[in-house]
C-alpha cells in the first residue's frame, strides 16, 4: 500500500482518528464515574483502578490467549476495588475523597507489584473493525479503524442517558444522589445504592484500563496510564454528569490530544510540542469558562461532597 500525500487534510483526519483511539479509556472511566457521582459519592481512586485493570487484563490475556477474557477479568477486579471503596465509605466520618486518593495509590502500587512478570511477554490485541474499507486512502483507513470497545462505550453512553430517566434503577440512583433523606423516606438504603454504583463505576474504569494495555498503546508497563483516570473525573464535572456529555467530552479530549502528533506529521517543526499540552489547556479553559464564583454547579448531585 503506497502512502498518499493528502497534505493539510491529514490534520483533521489525524484528529478524528486520535479522538476515536485516545478517547475510549476516557469514555469508560467517565461513564463509570458519572454513575458513582450521580449516586452522591465521588471515587478519585479510578486512576488506580484503571492501572490495575490494565495490568490484570494484560496478564489474563497473556495467560489465556484471549483478550476478551482479559477485559472480563479487569472488570471483575475493578468492581472489587469499587465495592471496597463503597464499603469503607459507608462508615460515618469516612471521607470519600481521602479514601479515593488512598485507593489510587494502592491500586497502582498493587498493579506494579503483580505486573512485573508481564512487562516482557506480549498479549493478543483487542479486535478492531475497519470502517474505512470504502476509501483507498490509507490515512482514512487508519483513522477509521475503530476498536470494538469504542463502539460499546458509545452505546453505553446512550444507554445510560436513557436509563437515568427510564428505569427504576436509574431513578433510584438519582434520588439517592440528590437527597439521602428523601431516599430514606422512600425506604431506600443510600449506602447500598452507593456501594453498587461505586462497584459498577470501578468495573467500567478497569475496562478503560484494559483498552490501554490491550489495544492502544497495547502493552503493559508502569507508565501505561498518563492520568486518564484523574482527567476523567474532571470530564464528568464539565459534562455536567450527563452520560452523552461524557462521551462528547472524551472525544473532544482525545481529539485535542492528537493535535500535537498530527501537526508534527505534516511537517510543522516549530512549537508543535506545545500542542501536546492541548488537552490540559482545553480542560482548564473549559473549566474556567463554565465556572462562576457566585453560583454552585448546575446539575450537580446534591449529596456530592465536592459540591455540598
Amino acid at each position: 500500500m503506497e502512502t498518499t500525500d493528502i497534505g493539510l487534510w491529514g490534520v483533521p483526519l489525524a484528529i478524528l482518528g486520535g479522538a476515536i483511539r485516545v478517547s475510549t479509556p476516557f469514555i469508560f472511566v467517565s461513564l463509570g464515574e458519572a454513575i458513582t457521582e450521580r449516586s452522591g459519592r465521588i471515587n478519585l481512586g479510578l486512576e488506580g483502578i484503571l492501572v490495575f485493570g490494565a495490568m490484570s487484563a494484560y496478564a489474563v490475556a497473556v495467560m489465556t490467549g484471549s483478550p476478551w477474557l482479559g477485559v472480563v477479568a479487569a472488570a471483575g477486579a475493578g468492581a472489587c476495588f469499587g465495592l471496597f471503596h463503597g464499603w469503607i465509605c459507608k462508615f460515618p466520618k469516612v471521607n470519600d475523597i481521602a479514601i479515593g486518593i488512598a485507593l489510587m495509590l494502592f491500586g497502582s502500587g498493587l498493579a506494579f507489584f503483580f505486573g512485573k512478570p508481564f512487562i516482557q511477554p506480549s498479549a493478543p490485541d483487542l479486535p478492531a473493525i475497519p470502517l474505512g474499507w470504502w476509501s483507498s486512502v490509507p490515512q482514512v483507513q487508519a483513522a477509521l479503524n475503530v476498536n470494538v470497545l469504542f463502539l460499546i462505550g458509545a452505546a453505553l453512553a446512550v444507554f445510560l442517558w436513557w436509563a437515568f430517566r427510564n428505569t427504576r434503577a436509574g431513578l433510584i440512583v438519582r434520588v439517592v444522589g440528590d437527597s439521602s433523606d428523601a431516599a430514606r423516606a422512600m425506604g431506600l438504603n443510600p449506602n447500598t445504592v452507593r456501594l453498587l454504583a461505586t462497584g459498577v463505576g470501578g468495573a467500567l474504569a478497569a475496562i478503560g484500563g484494559a483498552y490501554l494495555s490491550l489495544y492502544y498503546p497495547g502493552s503493559w508497563s508502569e507508565g501505561v496510564s498518563s492520568g486518564q483516570g484523574l482527567m476523567a473525573v474532571a470530564l464528568v464535572i464539565f459534562a455536567r454528569w450527563n452520560p452523552i456529555g461524557c462521551f462528547a467530552a472524551a472525544l473532544l479530549f482525545g481529539g485535542a490530544g492528537a493535535l500535537g502528533p498530527a501537526l508534527q506529521s505534516v511537517g510543522v517543526t516549530q512549537g508543535y510540542y506545545l500542542f501536546y499540552a492541548a488537552p490540559y489547556i482545553l480542560t482548564l479553559i473549559i473549566m474556567i469558562a463554565t465556572s462562576s464564583p457566585g453560583r454552585s454547579l448546575a446539575g450537580a448531585p446534591g449529596e456530592l461532597s465536592i459540591t455540598k
Binding site: D178, D181, P301
Partner: peptide, 15 residues
Amino acid sequence: TLVASLTGAENLVIS
C-alpha cells in the same frame, strides 16, 4: 421530601 432534580412525574412514580 421531594427530590429537587427529578421532575414531578418522576418523583411520584419512584415513590
